[in-house]
Simulated scan of single mutants.
Amino acid sequence: MDNGLITFIIVTWNNEKQIEKCLDTLEQFTTVPHKIIIVDNVSTDETCNIVIKKYPLVQLIKSNENLGFAKGNNIALKKVQTPYVCFINPDVILTEDITLPAINILEQDKNIGLVTNKLCNVDGSDQLTTGRFTDLVSILVNVCHLYHFIPNPFRKTLCPEYYKIENGVFSPDWVIGAEMFMRTSDAKIVGGFSTDYYMYMEDMDICWKVWHQLNKKILYNADVSMIHLGGASEKQNQSYSKQEKIIINTFIFCEKYYGKKKADRFHKFIMTLYRIRRLLIYPFKVINKGNSLLEHDKNILNILKSLNYNND
């Protein structure tokens, strides 16, 4: 097949320290005919020069502006002609063939619309890869850290991000966007990633569209893994800025798919939980070195208060 079987799409932004390992291991472990498209978001380091000099077969699209994750992927998606596509981060390092198992799953089960594999840290420990769509349950479990007390079998549905699975597969609501395999036709039907967000929540959004527009499932395959250096680009953002983006985008997602009234209820609920947390934490602030947790909750409450909700 002249066009290959799958196209890998990588969006870069100042990834000179990661891109070689990513591309080298893609070539080393991918056993099917493939293409690679990189969309660069105005890197100021050597990312583009490295790709041009060392990887002449990679199609490099240099943007004149920082398009963000969603727009960058969507520009490349329009050019994909292979039957399958994989959206993959530049800070992923392969240790085995992740592609053939994913394609086999998609070929064998037409009810599956998106496949991802296990993400690991450099030391081999598992990363949080799966999640539950934002709702009252997920808010309660995460804000109150109830996942510590939930038996592992129940985490599968209540808080899949903390569900421990050594091998096998299961269908969570959504998965982290560091690596996603789809049929190209499906990816184009849902319009790729939503541009309603600028960093964070694009992955949850596309998984929602797979479930509700395509009426297909998300599949997490723990039998195949890779290293995800994790947040190589994110680390260039301040932590408060990251918190702000995540919270704002969470409510964009809620209003988009649940409506303003339900998003308002979520906002009121999460504000109440954080206020209770602060009351419980405050007496122990002397013990809490640096008051980091208090500062974190203060930041969260300030961000929540800045949103356009009148439920106080």
Rank of each mutant, 00 (worst) to 15 (best):
K188G: 05
S171Q: 09
Y163K: 05
I189F: 07
I227C: 05
N221I: 07
F149Q: 06
Y163P: 01
I165L: 15
Q243P: 00
G191E: 03
T157Y: 10
Y200G: 01
C207M: 10
N215M: 03
I176M: 11
L158H: 04
Y198D: 11
S194G: 10
K156I: 02
R155H: 01
I227T: 08
G231E: 11
I189P: 02
N152R: 07
K216E: 00
K164D: 07
M226N: 12
E166H: 09
V143D: 10
L146A: 07
M226I: 09
F149E: 03
I247E: 00
S185N: 11
A187K: 13
V175R: 06
V210R: 02
F181P: 00
K242V: 12
R183H: 15
D135L: 10
S194D: 12
L146I: 09
S185Q: 11
N215L: 02
V141P: 01
K216F: 01
M180H: 13
Y240M: 06
M204G: 05
K235L: 08
A222G: 04
W211Q: 10
Q243C: 08
V141W: 03
S241G: 14
Y240R: 15
I165G: 02
M226P: 05
E244P: 04
G231T: 11
F149A: 04
E179C: 11
I139V: 03
Y198I: 09
Y240A: 10
I246G: 00
D135R: 07
D135K: 09
N142E: 13
D186F: 04
S171M: 05
A178Y: 09
S138F: 05
K217I: 00
S241E: 14
M182D: 00
I139D: 02
I247W: 01
I139Q: 03
V141S: 01
F193I: 07
V137S: 10
Q236H: 12
E244Q: 14
C207D: 09
L219F: 02
M199W: 13
C144F: 08
Y220N: 01
V141Q: 03
G192T: 06
L158C: 03
Q238M: 10
L229E: 06
S185M: 06
I189L: 06
S241R: 13
D205K: 11
E234C: 14
T157H: 07
L219C: 05
V210Y: 02
L136I: 14
P172T: 08
T184G: 08
